[in-house]
């Protein structure tokens, strides 16, 4: 058994949407270095339940860094202190006995709090609905190999496709901009032969939807790239700007 140590927590508690919330202090003295951050919260919740309290709501699904639901602002950084790491992949060995950790929800007008640390990220779904797809049948898996794609193009598209839509980019951006998310989806779909024909329509529709959802302007802080658990580059944002302006200049011509 690994040695147990004590962690002090300040966790945002909010009973529901549009209700006032506040940071509540907790102390957990049974933390061990092998726990993930979420497992530590599980243990805390068990303790709260045993004491008859209301457990802390937080979001998760896969717990292996691929679903993008474990949205936590840990000590003022989306997904905590480590680069290219989701909250569920952050381990307690990164902390020392007696540390105090502040945990808050991802904050943005477009991500309203549902309860405690859980926010509503359906704004991202609506950006995807606006154009984050390919309208033709692309066939089944073997058909993917029937269209030759340059290795470099495929690799770059794949890099952008690693976006798990967690929303850390929005949470960390001083302006609450969703440009990295939208840009990554566009950079992925626009550069592949199946997605290219709808490039202009898609770019315009997704950029417009992003703005309508109440996400802010991009001021090139690149904080989004720093917090992105997949390390997606803000080059995606430059590409989005280029494609958007090109689409507007070209008008309806294909």
């Amino acid at each position: 058994m690994a040695e147990e140590f004590t962690i002090n927590l300040k966790i945002w508690r909010q009973a529901g949407p549009d209700q006032p919330g506040k940071l509540v202090d907790y102390t957990l003295d049974t933390v061990n270095e092998h726990m993930s951050f979420l497992e530590m919260l599980d243990v805390l919740n068990e303790k709260i339940l045993n004491e008859g309290g209301d457990p802390i709501e937080f979001d998760y699904d896969c717990r292996e860094g691929i679903c993008g639901s474990c949205d936590l602002m840990i000590d003022g950084r989306a997904h905590g202190p480590k680069a290219m790491t989701c909250s569920c992949q952050l381990h307690m060995r990164n902390y020392n006995d007696g540390d105090t950790i502040t945990v808050e929800p991802f904050r943005a007008r477009a991500f309203p709090v549902i309860k405690d640390l859980v926010v509503d990220r359906s704004a991202f779904d609506r950006i995807i609905e606006a154009g984050g797809y390919v309208s033709i049948k692309t066939g089944s898996a073997p058909d993917a190999n029937s269209i030759p794609v340059d290795k470099q193009v495929a690799d770059t598209a794949f890099d952008y496709a690693t976006c798990i839509g967690c929303g850390a980019c929005v949470a960390a951006c001083p302006n609450s901009s969703a440009s990295l998310f939208t840009g990554a989806k566009l950079a992925h779909l626009n550069r592949l032969p199946q997605g290219e024909p709808e490039r202009k329509k898609r770019t315009v529709a997704m950029v417009e939807q992003m703005e309508e959802e109440g996400f802010g302007d991009c001021s090139n802080f690149a904080e989004c790239e720093a917090v992105c658990p997949k390390g997606i580059s803000i080059s995606a944002i430059a590409e989005m700007r280029r494609n958007y302006m090109k689409a507007a200049l070209a008008g309806d011509e294909a």
Partner: peptide, 20 residues
């Protein structure tokens, strides 16, 4: 910026790395 994050963070810091 003020409008799009009506409730700010109690604690906020940069993650460094590529960030400006």
């Amino acid at each position: 910026r003020r409008k799009n994050r009506p409730e700010g963070y109690e604690k906020y810091q940069t993650k460094g790395g590529p960030s400006h």
